[in-house]
Design a protein around this nucleic acid. Sequence first.
DNA 1: TAGATTGTTAATCGATTAACAATC
DNA 2: TAGATTGTTAATCGATTAACAATC
Lengths: 207, 207
Amino acid sequence: MIFKNRKIILRISQYKSTIIYYKQIGFTKIYSDFLGEKTGVTASQVRKDFSLFGIKGNKRGGYFIDDLLTALNKILGKEDTQKVIIAGAGNIGSALAGYKKFHSESIKIVACFDIDPVKTSKKGVVPVFPYSEMADFIRDNAIEVGIVAVPEVFAQDVVNNMVKAGIRGILNFAPVNIKEPSEDCYINNVNLEIELENIIYFVKKKE
Amino acid sequence: MIFKNRKIILRISQYKSTIIYYKQIGFTKIYSDFLGEKTGVTASQVRKDFSLFGIKGNKRGGYFIDDLLTALNKILGKEDTQKVIIAGAGNIGSALAGYKKFHSESIKIVACFDIDPVKTSKKGVVPVFPYSEMADFIRDNAIEVGIVAVPEVFAQDVVNNMVKAGIRGILNFAPVNIKEPSEDCYINNVNLEIELENIIYFVKKKE
DNA sequence: TAGATTGTTAATCGATTAACAATC
DNA sequence: TAGATTGTTAATCGATTAACAATC
């Protein structure tokens, strides 16, 4: 089964977060209405989502947390480690590289790349290499996921280079809406200004 | 007219970006099918969105860019300046404070707050004050929008304090799904791990 | 067993797209 | 005028919710 829908996968991530929390505090099973309430969706939505992915619970008995976690992790590809690179070691790029609070070991930021020689360094937790080495690094290490944190004007070029070298999924923090350069590449744009404009609209609307 | 729908407002921001670009390169009017193509939506969508906000074009003549820009800016509240504060002057918080690439003057990040005295400083472009002063600052300056960039465990508390002091819209970068503490507050969560999980799902799906 | 919860189908809701009359 | 584009209504599409039989 193939989903085009981004939202269902976001919910899968959120269900996972919720059940990790309740596992930690000692739960061994969980019901769709409780999980829904804690995640902020309806019980129907929970059961529907699980059903679409073939996740089965126990009639009358809810879902076993360990089984559920295994199933959700499998959907999200968390059984393997994903190596991720970052283009741009400026403010945002370095902040993301320093992000160590992933809840699992399955996502690893392995390298940054920057054109500025002053920023290159092999000493940090995440080394910063010259941008010219990015394409080879992607190929040599079979990297599939990249983060773009370069200034606006370079963003489309960087994306094109990433895709040419084999990257298949990109998270873009540059303030431009990037076009997917090929069918094979999935891009998600995170745009601070647009997010703030959105919030401001809803704040003003209520006045 | 009140829209609950976040997506239409995101598109309004994107239309704005697109027409700013075409204004810069000399366009004075624009057609729905061109604007749609450049923004990545259908022409129907463009006209429908405009129609919902009462934006009128010229039959046969498209939309005048200046009028359109004025109308979109008005929707997004860009006629006034919005002062924004940041809680947390760690990696992410400082990176966001250093973000100077807003396309307009209408969003101003005016202060950061942090519990760590080492991080407080009045010298940067954006001053960093002690966290204990945040609530008073919000009240004294009638701040309505806040960004949360504190560690996970503090996030819900910080949000509660912001809202109590008068903040009405929050952009949360902490890796927890924050509950809206009241009806009057709009919250949007940006979660790096969830974004990456999403991308990884779509990358793996195609394999 | 009786009661509660799942899994799935049907109904509803909302958003997007298509179509086309109006008209510049 | 003829042709092209808007503005809006209707049709379609997709996602969410409700309902309920199955069953533990």
